[in-house]
Design a protein around this nucleic acid. Structure first.
Lengths: 331, 331
DNA sequence: TTGAAAGCGCTAACAC
DNA sequence: GTGTTAGCGCTTTCAA
C-alpha cells in the first residue's frame, strides 16, 4: 500500500480511502491511485485491515458438514456458498466424518482464523464449549443436527415426521412387518428417525419386533449384510425402511442379490442418486439440503446484520416421492 | 494475548513462545501460561501473527472446482481437504460454474485473503493474469483443465486416451456408427475427449459422420433431447459415447424413454452414480478424482516446502469399467 | 480533501 | 529463560 501511495504521489491514507471507496477524495486522485494500484498488481490484505477495523469482519465463514464428498453435504455447501458469494464472503469448508475430535479441531481452526460466523454439523455429546463464542457475539447456526448444552439457531429436517410418513406409507400399502435399518444412535438424525418409526408402528397398533430393528449401519456394505440377515429370518420383513442414503443403497444391493427387489417393499430416507432409473424405482422421503443451506446462511447473515432476538428453530419439511419400490404389496 | 500474559504474570513474548511451542521456556512457565489461556478461552489470531511472521504463511489454501455440488469436484475437494488437514491448513472452496468472471473473482478473493497456495479449475481462455502471483512464489496447481498463457503444475485426467479407449471398446464390439455427445468445446476436457473420439474413429478407418456429433450439451435434459433426435435419424447410431457424467445420465433417460436401452450400446466418460445397479449396468471410463485432488495438494505443499524445479504435468489414468451397456452388439 | 500518528495482535531481533 | 522494542499492512482518530 505504501508503494502504491509513493507511486501515486499521495499519502497512504488516501490510498486506503480509494481502495475502500470512501468519500472525500477528488476524482483525479482516485484515478491516479487506481492507476498506480493496477500497475503494481496491488491486492489489499484483508487481514491486516481487519486487525484495526472497527467491525473486525474477515469476510469469512466456517462451514462444517458431514463430508464434503457426500451429496447431501455438498448440496448444503453449495447453497451456503451461493449466499456467501453475494456478500463477498469466502467459505472454509470442512468434513466432520462423525468424529468428535474433528468437530472440535475444525471449530478451533475456524476460530483462529477469525471467521465471522459458524455453520456447524456436530457429533460431540455437547456443544457447551462454544458458549464463549456465543457470548462474544459470533453468529452460530447448527444444521442437520440439534446441538445440546447450548442454545443457538438450528436448521433441521423434520426427521421424525419424515420417518413417520415413510412408515405410514408402508402401513397403508398393507405391510405389518416393516424393518428399520439405521445409523448409529449417537447421531441425532438417526435417533429422530428411529423415534418416528417406532411411534408410527405403535400408533398403528403394531408392537415393534426387535429382530427387525438394526442400528449402527454406517455404510452400504453393513446395510447390505443386515438386509441379507433379515431376509434369512423364518418370518422375514415384507418391507424395509432405510433410514439413510447409504443404507438405502445397501438395501437395494442386497435385495437385488437375493432376487427380492420385486417382492420386498423399500422406502428410503433421503433421496438416492438415479433413484428414478432403477428397477423398481425407489420411493423415498426426500430432504431439501439446498433449503437447509440457504436458511442457515440467511440466519448467520441476519445476526451479522444486527438481528438480536432469541435463537430460533427452522424445520425444513420432507417430501414423499412415490416411485414404485414403496408400493409393493406384502406377499 | 496481553490479557493472558497479565493473568499468567509473564511477558507477552513468553505467551507467544508457549503458543508456538518454541523452546527455551521453563516447564512451570508453560503450565502457568496454558492455564491462563484456558481460563480466558484464548484463541490466537493467525492473521495477526502472519503479518509479521517471516514465512508469512496463513495456513490457508484456495480451491476452485467445477461446482462443490458435483460428485467429481466433491471428490477432488475431499482429497485436498484430507491432505490439508494433516498440515493444519484450512481450505477455501469455491465453485466455478464454468463462468469466466467467477474464475477471476474467486482467485482475487483468495489472493486478498493471502492464501498460501492455489488449486484451480479454469474456464478463461488465458490464465496469464496469474503471472504476477507465480513470480511472487505462490504455488499454483491447475486441476482437470490445462491452463494457457502460463506454465504451472497441472494435474489432468488422460482425456483423449480415455475417450479413445471408450471408442475402441465399441469398435471391438462391432459398432461403426458411434455417436459423440459432448459438452461445450470451450471446455478443455470436452475438446480433448472429442479429439480422442475422432482420432480413434479415423484410425479405425471410419469417417466421422457430423450428424452423429453433438457438442454444447451442458446438462441431462439437453443430452436427452440430443439422443432422442439421433434415434429418430434414418440411419441412427448403434452406439453412443457420452463424453461426460450428466450427458451419460441424459442418454440413459432418453434410451429408456425410447425403449432402446437394450439395443443401443452406451459408454460414458466419468463414472455415474449407481451405474452398477441400472439395467443394463453402465459401462464407463472412470476418472480418479481422489487421486487428482491428492496429487494437486501434494504438488502445492512440495512447492511450499521449497521444491523449485520447473512445472510438471501429472496425468492420472482412467479405468474402463465393463458393466453391460457398452457390450451390446450392433443390431 | 488530505495526511501524520497511533495502534490492531502478533512475531523478529536483540537485550537482559 | 525471559522481557523489550520495533514493525507487519492496514484503519482509526484527529489535525491541517
Amino acid at each position: 500500500m505504501k508503494n502504491v501511495a509513493d507511486l501515486a504521489g499521495v499519502g497512504i491514507k488516501t490510498v486506503s480511502r480509494v481502495i475502500n471507496n470512501e468519500p472525500y477524495v477528488s476524482e483525479e486522485t482516485v484515478a491516479k491511485v487506481r492507476r498506480a494500484a493496477e500497475q503494481l498488481q496491488y491486492q489489499p490484505d484483508v487481514h491486516a485491515g481487519n486487525l484495526r477495523r472497527s467491525d473486525r469482519r474477515t469476510g469469512t465463514l466456517g462451514l462444517l458438514v458431514g463430508s464434503v464428498a457426500n451429496p447431501f453435504s455438498a448440496a448444503v455447501h453449495r447453497a451456503v456458498e451461493d449466499a456467501a458469494l453475494a456478500r463477498h464472503v469466502a467459505v472454509f469448508a470442512s468434513s466432520l466424518d462423525d468424529d468428535p475430535e474433528r468437530e472440535v479441531s475444525s471449530v478451533e481452526a475456524f476460530l483462529r482464523r477469525r471467521v465471522d460466523g459458524l455453520i456447524l454439523t456436530t457429533i460431540q455429546s455437547s456443544q457447551a464449549y462454544l458458549g464463549a463464542q456465543v457470548e462474544q457475539g459470533i453468529p452460530l447456526v447448527f444444521v442437520d443436527r440439534r446441538p445440546s448444552g447450548i442454545v443457538a439457531d438450528t436448521v433441521l429436517t423434520d426427521n421424525a415426521e419424515g420417518a413417520a410418513r415413510a412408515v405410514e406409507h408402508l402401513l397403508r400399502v398393507g405391510h405389518r412387518r416393516i424393518a428399520y435399518l439405521g445409523d448409529s444412535t449417537d447421531i441425532f438424525t438417526a435417533r429422530e428417525r428411529k423415534r418416528g418409526y417406532l411411534d408410527t408402528l405403535r400408533h398403528g397398533g403394531i408392537a415393534p419386533d426387535p429382530r427387525l430393528i438394526v442400528d449402527g449401519l454406517g455404510d452400504e456394505t453393513l446395510a447390505a449384510e443386515a438386509v441379507a440377515s433379515l431376509l434369512a429370518l423364518d418370518d422375514p420383513p415384507t418391507a424395509i425402511f432405510g433410514a439413510q442414503n447409504l443404507i438405502t443403497i445397501g438395501a437395494i444391493m442386497a435385495l437385488r442379490a437375493a432376487g427380492a427387489s420385486a417382492r420386498v417393499a423399500l422406502v428410503g430416507f433421503d433421496d438416492v442418486p438415479m433413484a428414478a432409473l432403477l428397477e423398481p424405482a425407489v420411493t423415498v422421503i426426500a430432504q431439501d439440503p439446498a433449503s437447509i443451506g440457504a436458511i442457515a446462511a440467511r440466519l448467520v447473515f441476519e445476526r451479522l446484520d444486527g438481528f438480536d432476538e432469541p435463537a430460533r428453530d427452522f424445520i425444513v419439511p420432507t417430501r414423499l416421492i412415490v416411485r414404485g419400490s414403496g408400493e409393493i404389496a406384502p406377499g
